[in-house]
């Protein structure tokens, strides 16, 4: 093989860096959505690669549902500080208090309420672009989304009216009040993300690795025991050796039983996996079009 050859990960990396720089150059007020999860950890590394030795020229934004794993928020704050970035956190709780987000009677999940909270934050800071870590291999509505995904002034995605995206020429033009969601990891798979974490030697929150935890059996999954939705007497509770494969809210993220202690272990586990990453996310199982419906309303 010629020395002028990029392997798979190097190719994905240069594609993503190019996109990061296009955003910095074409938008006035971009932001990077950073949760502390594995995909957004890669995003921040790509931002470093795109902009160093300068500072990363955009703040980080996170919507805190109030149901996050504590380990995740801790990691988020530490990583943002390490990178010298400005981290903006907007809380669903505050959005509920101010009437921006209105829960349905008895609605415990904060999943839907993230949407108005995020859109309010975008409006508050007049962000014209939000970079997110979504990948096309995650879900079939996402499989249809462009790198540069246009949102109208209501924050909505119109899947039938997407701009053609040709070569590496991204059309970032928006009118005032509209914004763009940009997904530099579109072409990355779960495997690529972990291979990149290994290659770049990136730290990730501890919950990705095997640990002991009290879990409760619900809808065919082991969910963490929390005070938010305490186990009922009829429910089975067990202490298990588990880890998370994908991180959502603590009340809906299925834990998988796993002895994987290192990134290498995780890579072996994924290679042998027989279910997809989002198979452990109850929020996606609501219906065949669950993700599409949320995206149309302005979800990540």
């Amino acid at each position: 093989m010629s020395i002028y050859h990029l392997d798979h990960l190097q190719y994905l990396e240069t594609e993503s860096i190019h996109i990061m720089r296009e955003v910095a150059a074409e938008f006035e007020r971009p932001t990077i959505l950073f949760s502390g999860g594995k995909d957004s950890i890669c995003l921040l590394r790509l931002a470093e690669k795109a902009f160093r030795p300068s500072e990363i020229p955009m703040p980080f934004l996170n919507v805190d549902t109030g149901h996050h794993f504590p380990e995740l928020n801790e990691f988020r704050d530490v990583r943002a500080a390490e990178l010298g970035g400005r981290l903006i956190v907007r809380k669903v709780e505050d959005a509920i208090a101010s009437g921006i987000a209105v829960p349905n009677p008895g609605e415990v999940s904060r999943n839907r309420l993230q949407i108005p909270t995020l859109l309010a934050a975008i409006e508050e800071f007049r962000f014209d672009c939000a970079i997110g870590g979504a990948r096309r291999d995650e879900e079939k509505a996402r499989a249809k989304e462009r790198f540069f995904s246009f949102r109208d002034s209501f924050g909505q995605w119109d899947p039938k009216n997407q701009r053609p995206e040709i070569w590496n020429l991204y059309n970032g033009r928006v009118n005032s009040g509209e914004h763009m969601r940009v997904f530099p990891l579109s072409n990355w798979t779960e495997m690529d993300v972990w291979e990149y974490i290994r290659r770049e030697n990136l730290a990730v929150p501890t919950i990705y690795f095997s640990h002991k935890r009290l879990c409760v059996r619900r809808q065919g999954q082991w969910l963490p025991v929390t005070s938010l939705v305490p186990p009922k007497p009829s429910e089975e509770v067990r202490e298990l050796v588990v880890r998370v494969r994908t991180i959502g809210d603590i009340i809906s993220t299925g834990m998988i039983e796993s002895p994987a202690n290192t990134v290498d272990d995780i890579l072996i586990e994924i290679a042998a996996a027989r279910v997809t990453e989002r198979g452990s996310r109850a929020d996606d199982k609501a219906s065949e079009a669950a993700m599409e419906d949320r995206k149309k309303q302005g979800y990540f």
């Binding site: 096309r136 291999d137 079939k140 499989a143 249809k144 997407q162």
Partner: peptide
């Protein structure tokens, strides 16, 4: 598997470019 949007499944047609990954 690839017709990811509701309208596509209902009408049995593919509306937009869908990306798939395998190795």
């Amino acid at each position: 598997l690839t017709d990811g949007l509701r309208a596509e499944r209902e009408q049995g047609i593919t509306i937009d470019v869908a990306y798939r990954y395998f190795a």
